[in-house]
């Protein structure tokens, strides 16, 4: 069946089997491999993308559920001139990553959180990102990065 959606500002139509997951559409059909798969059970959040501006775990949605939607992936976060999104820049500057596998999902979840709450507390960030797992950092530098980015947004 046909699924028409916008990914990172460009309209696409794909002929897909109905069982195709949104993350499969993104990785295999659109060829955008920045979105990672870490668990298959919507536990880790590595596959987080924005669906109409809000963070979703793309392994938990069927591609057909995104029909007509506006999807943003990690590849669509930088400005047209290549300037990184403040959250991306803050993850770099605060050493909010090591292996980096969770990072795209974290950036997507964090930017969605900041869109909703531009001045979060440390506690707000932890509660807001609790659905994203990181096995390397122990999370503190990620929290720092999100708080730094919120300052940059203000």
């Amino acid at each position: 069946m046909n699924v028409t959606l916008t990914i990172n500002g460009t309209a696409h139509t794909y002929d897909l089997e109905p069982r195709t997951l949104l993350v499969q559409l993104i990785r295999e059909h659109a060829g955008l491999t920045g979105t990672n798969i870490g668990c298959d059970t919507s536990s880790c959040g590595a596959c987080s993308v924005h669906l109409d501006g809000e963070a979703v775990k793309s392994c938990t949605l069927l591609a057909v559920q995104a029909d007509g939607a506006d999807v943003t992936t990690i590849e669509g976060m930088a400005s047209a001139d290549g300037t990184m999104h403040p959250v991306q820049q803050a993850f770099m500057d605060e050493h909010g990553l090591q292996c980096g596998f969770c990072t795209p999902g974290m950036v997507m979840a964090a930017s969605s959180l900041l869109a909703e709450n531009p001045s979060p507390t440390d506690e707000d960030v932890r509660i807001g990102l609790e659905g994203n797992l990181c096995r390397c950092t122990g999370y503190h530098n990620i929290v720092k990065a999100v708080l730094t980015a919120s300052g940059a947004d203000q």
Partner: peptide, 16 residues
């Protein structure tokens, strides 16, 4: 010093 692969990792272009 910050990671040399950090930019690629935050932009999703690092190839796992």
């Amino acid at each position: 010093v910050l990671r040399p692969d950090g930019t690629a990792k935050v932009q999703g272009s690092f190839e796992f």
